[in-house]
């Protein structure tokens, strides 16, 4: 109807706004996809050997992922933690060589395509490269 005639300018503006809205929704969807993607982290406190080096297990260590619950790992413990999102922060509290408590905090990224990771705490504390690795459940 005549009172709803849309002039060229308005039309272009609307097309742009709508396109932007759809784009926004897509970006939002992508953000939600990566942000909500769940991963399983296996926290491992075992002696392992990597590239010829041996990382010894700790007697006791406290690990926290993001703002989650603090997990206390004793010798040979393996704990499963579910997290969502790609960017994660790991906080490890352990008794240092000098007897004092030491805290190491580190940010790391998870790949969307990998559902499960194995984190070796001894390797982490030692600052080794391969402290986090994708994990394939064998069954």
């Amino acid at each position: 109807m005549s009172n709803f005639a849309i002039t060229g300018n308005v039309r272009i503006r609307r097309i742009l706004i709508r396109a932007a809205f759809i784009l926004f929704m897509l970006i939002l969807a992508v953000f939600l996809f990566f942000g909500g993607k769940a991963h399983t982290l296996l926290l491992d406190n075992k002696t392992i050997e990597k590239e010829g080096k041996i990382y010894r297990e700790l007697n006791v260590v406290e690990v926290r992922i993001g703002s989650g619950k603090e997990e206390e790992l004793l010798k040979k413990d393996r704990v499963k933690i579910d997290v969502s999102g790609q960017r994660q922060v790991i906080t490890v509290t352990f008794p240092g060589d000098d007897g004092n408590e030491k805290i190491i905090k580190k940010t790391f990224h998870l790949k969307a395509g990998v559902p499960m990771y194995l984190i070796s705490i001894p390797a982490f504390i030692a600052g080794a490269d391969g402290w986090i690795e994708p994990f394939e459940p064998s069954n």
């Binding site: 909500g36 993607k37 769940a38």
Partner: peptide, 21 residues
């Protein structure tokens, strides 16, 4: 879909809504 993709929490819920649109 979000269950298959393993998207959790609010993220998952809102993504499911967007997918349904």
């Amino acid at each position: 879909f979000i269950t298959d993709w393993n998207i959790t929490g609010l993220h998952g819920m809102f993504l499911a809504m967007i997918l349904s649109i």
